[in-house]
């Protein structure tokens, strides 16, 4: 009872919302950059896995197992604290004064990109495989080379098949940007933590934080649903 009386949502809302608004740009930017990188990586991993190069295939499978077998948080921390050190050590073999650093944001984007790229590669791969083989043959018969048939005929159809799933992964990535707090990116969680520890408005702050994520992801989920319906028409 006592606790409830002390709740002060209006103060928390008044003070925390502008702080969160400032962090919104970082959430959107890291999602946009991270997802673009993931799409790029995912497509090339998928194509590598479909190709007939045995060694490339094995290397990619090992990469996938590593990424899927470790937590995203660990990967982000590794990307921020360990990877620059390793690159620095290697660089110093040539130039003793060499030093490599990654900004927290860059490390976060690369970490998210690699992690999601691995998951997306499986989505893209199965979408490509699910396109009717006759499509590829029709393109070849018209004079397309293998590569042209893949990029001009198969991948556009695969993208349609995979698009709704991409949408769900974007929503997941928005929520996963909260992990960037652990590598000092000043996104929503880190800002909320700071505010809550100063004001002790713990319940209020984290409730507002949860609402902020909902405000971001609910409209997107709706867009995904509409997209799903529209794309189903001509496949």
């Amino acid at each position: 009872m006592n606790l409830l009386e002390k709740l002060d949502f209006s103060t928390a809302f008044r003070e925390l919302s502008p702080i969160l608004m400032e962090g919104l740009g970082i959430v959107l930017a890291s999602t946009l950059c991270g997802f673009s990188l993931a799409l790029l990586l995912g497509t090339f991993i998928a194509l590598g896995r479909i190709s007939k190069y045995f060694l490339l295939n094995k290397v990619l499978v090992v990469l996938l197992e590593i990424v899927r077998g470790t937590p995203l948080l660990v990967q982000l921390v590794y990307m921020y604290y360990v990877v620059p050190l390793i690159i620095t050590l290697i660089g110093q073999l040539w130039d003793p004064s060499y030093r490599f650093t990654l900004s927290p944001f860059m490390a976060g984007v690369i970490g998210l990109g690699i992690n999601y790229g691995c998951y997306l590669s499986e989505v893209i791969r199965s979408a490509i495989i699910s396109v009717d083989k006759g499509q590829f043959e029709a393109a070849l018969a018209l004079g397309y080379t293998n590569r042209q048939a893949m990029w001009l005929i198969i991948i556009p159809q695969a993208v349609r098949i995979a698009l709704p799933t991409f949408g769900n992964y974007i929503i997941m990535m928005i929520k996963d940007t909260s992990l960037l707090a652990f590598i000092t990116v000043s996104e929503l969680l880190l800002r909320t933590q700071a505010y809550a520890s100063q004001t002790f408005l713990t319940i209020e702050s984290y409730t507002i934080l949860a609402l902020a994520y909902l405000v971001l992801s609910l409209p997107l989920a709706q867009i995904v649903r509409i997209m799903e319906k529209r794309l189903k028409r001509h496949v």
Binding site: E137, A138, A141, I153, R160, H234, V235
Partner: peptide, 15 residues
């Protein structure tokens, strides 16, 4: 490109 082919299952590009 010098030889056209027509398939049993049409294989039109659906998009």
């Amino acid at each position: 490109t010098e030889i056209g082919m027509v398939f049993q299952r049409f294989n039109l590009f659906p998009t």
